[in-house]
Design a protein around this nucleic acid. Sequence first.
RNA 1: GCCGCGUUCGUCUAGGGGUCUAGGACGCCGGCCUUUCACGCCGGUAACACGGGUUCGAAUCCCGUACGCGGUACCA
Length: 502
Amino acid sequence: MSDTLVDASVRVRFAPSPTGFLHIGGLRTALYNYLFARRHGGRFIVRIEDTDRERYVEGAEDDILASLRWAGITYDEGPDVGGPVGPYRQSERRDLYRQYIQPLLEAGHAYYAFDTPEELDAMREEARQRGEAGKYDATTRLRMKNALTLPEAEVQRRLDAGEPYVVRLRVPAGEVISFHDHVRGTVSIDAGEVDDQVLIKSDGMPTYHFANVVDDHLMGITHVIRGEEWLPSTPKHVLLYRFLGWEVPQMAHLPLILSPTGGKLSKRKAEAAGIPVFVKDYRAQGYDPEALVNFLAFLGWNPGDERELFTLDELARVFSLDRVGNAGVQFNMDKLAWYNQQYLRQRPVEDLVEAVWPHVRAQGYEVDRDYVRAVVGLMRERVTFPQEIVTEAPYFFEDPAGYDEAGVKKRWKADSADLLAAYADRLEALETFDEATAEATLRALAEERGVGAGRLIHPVRLALSGVTYGPGLFELMHVLGRDACVRRIRRAVEVLGSAATA
RNA sequence: GCCGCGUUCGUCUAGGGGUCUAGGACGCCGGCCUUUCACGCCGGUAACACGGGUUCGAAUCCCGUACGCGGUACCA
């Protein structure tokens, strides 16, 4: 079935801006592009859009690339792996953009403009006073300082004198620009709503709008899959393709990821809602990349059946743009936690030991890998994150520092001290200490004293762990070992002996 | 303000005119299992934004309203 879908000419790209670390929403955009490429046997490209020198953040590019790799999203072409249509960093393609702006200038589809920021502000202010939009467009461009209003000689003089200028797109009036979007169907916008977008900034760098069109074309991008925030500016891109005489790639605008409180999941909102914003945060918090990817894939897409657990490869086999939803989606930490738990349980024990080990070392616990392996075996179904195997069950590594108050109240009875002291004695006298003998000894003692086994089990658990919940008592005892068990039971008898409630 | 895009349980969603007394998942609430907890299993709670059309018949098609989101930069 997938054979009919193989189209090696499919080329998609993820084009992040190095203005910050990789955002969780960016990872989803990258993921969808990746899945689409894999599904069709095409190529997935990463291109760094670093045309904004003001907002450039040192280290952001490395973080973006490292985060993608961590998530298992590999790319066929990119800044650090190269490729046939590089460079893959826009700052290194500067001359290319200048080359493609020429024909636009010559054909009158673009023009030089010399307005200062102050003049632009004044124009917008004035227009707004009159209740107009305040756009640099067909209605206002003739009132501004540009090649359309200045004498040709004057324009040339300014250019020659090295005065700062920008190049703007001359958007035609009286036209409706339509394009097909794979997620939304036909989208139409009146050209009158589109402004004369700056194509080349005064620092010589292209804007996103221009660079993105030139690069997508030069890099042979067949499908542009990006966030919905780009939908309103797509008409500008469509116009550019037309003026440049190029074919418009297929478009697909993905629904935005929303904060639980509404609105785009900005850094501020996400933090307020307890949602990590950057991919590296998920990594640091112990999320399984496969779980994150699985969760993210389902944020705006679903396979159409009721299955929810898919590995990256499985997703790549069934992903389709047709099944991408079109309404904004809220990020849900509970669901993510559930996914993480599912994946954690599926991981091989050895894998988990590896993941837990650093946390054991960080706590300074002196145990070996076999011991950690045993703990993992008992705890893996009770936690969401690997490190919780250490943090949620410290009693595997050190004697309890205290006893849960409510637990003592509920489980420590008048006869507990007596029973436990006797149990400790018998454990010490045991020839072999293991799960079976610990249990048999306890049950025999309970029977002799004419009490239910629970009368021993609960206070013993409390003595060993300090809490009232956890793995099966006898498994716990076996892992802890006889010495620790006897020591902890005696200690509890000493500390809680008289704390008994009737 | 203007333009665009959207609107099924709290959340992610199935659904593409009759099979919907609307299905699944997360969460939540019960129960079983376990003399603990978790896992697992069983059950429950809960939604087609509103108003008009079209049609024999609308969650599904059309229009309007409301609401939400996005855009409106020499940022991406």
